[in-house]
Amino acid sequence: MRRVIIVLLVLVGLFVAADFGAAALAESVVSRQMRQQIGLRDDPSVRINGFPFLTQALTGRYGSVDVQANNITVAELEDLSVQAQLRDVDAPLSTVLGSGPKTLKVGEAEGSVRIPARDVEQLLNRNGAITLDDLRIDPVDEAGLKAAAEESDDTSLTSIDPDLAVRLTATTVLPLLGENEVSVIAQLSLDNGKARIVPRDVRFGGNALPTAVQRVVAEVFTVTVDPGSLPLQVTPTELTAESGALRVSGTARNLTIGGASTE
């Protein structure tokens, strides 16, 4: 019995090793194809989800494939992250592992570009009126908007959709007021794939600013960010704030990826 158990364990180990090896090879093929499709300089990270891989490979159907590429430069932005999740992928084993053209059919693709706070800070500082340091980006929920409305006595803040609200916080120096933390609640909008930030409430050290100074600070925080196109020509439909970044995302259906040889 002990010998049988050992043999079974060896066979299981061999199967797992073969499964991971085949998956790694397929991921490498998909990575090269995605690099060409998205137009990247380097191969992105690709993960074919689900275990075992071989059962998916035999049917040529994959539930989901994750693709990610980091440190991408687009115009003035230097540290973008591009992500895509491919769902209901149709790729026969002969296509994935063969030497011919690589073509993948995708039922649905969700693509997004993540714009980190550091890139947003660089854009804001190009306005030149004041210099911002250590910019932080955070979402604002309904309770946060209500609290800000009560502090500022501006009930219009509660009309902002929390999904389109963002809090930008940084350290700066203002003339005659010294150094302190500036906090801005802004409204997000998406225009032709570009992220628009429009301040609605400005605080310095937790307090309101004189009207003239507030106008200057608000102008610094008013900016349009162009992250470039989404992967797989996905149409941008959503702009959201998350901890440390802005994210532009969208979905597309019934895609064909590739068709040319990756050799």
Rank of each mutant, 00 (worst) to 15 (best):
F15I: 03
D138Y: 05
A91C: 06
P101K: 10
Q122D: 05
S183W: 02
L164E: 14
L230Q: 05
V216Q: 15
M34Y: 05
N127M: 06
Q56D: 14
A260I: 04
S261A: 11
K102W: 00
I130K: 03
A24Y: 11
V182P: 00
L104F: 07
L230R: 04
Q33Y: 04
G13W: 04
S94A: 08
S152W: 01
V10P: 03
A143D: 13
L168C: 13
F221S: 05
R118M: 01
V106G: 06
D42M: 05
L255F: 13
N71E: 08
T73F: 04
D66S: 09
S249Y: 05
R47V: 13
A109Q: 02
I38W: 10
N125V: 10
T73K: 13
D43T: 08
V113E: 01
G244P: 00
L8S: 13
K146C: 00
L104N: 05
R35I: 00
D88G: 08
V7C: 08
V4K: 09
L168K: 11
N125E: 12
P175T: 13
E242T: 11
S156G: 08
S183D: 04
E76W: 03
M34I: 04
P92M: 00
S64H: 11
L177Y: 07
V223H: 12
E76S: 11
L232P: 12
M1W: 03
V96N: 12
Q187P: 07
I5K: 15
A18P: 00
D66E: 07
D226A: 15
R200C: 06
R136T: 14
T251L: 08
Q56W: 04
A69L: 02
D154L: 03
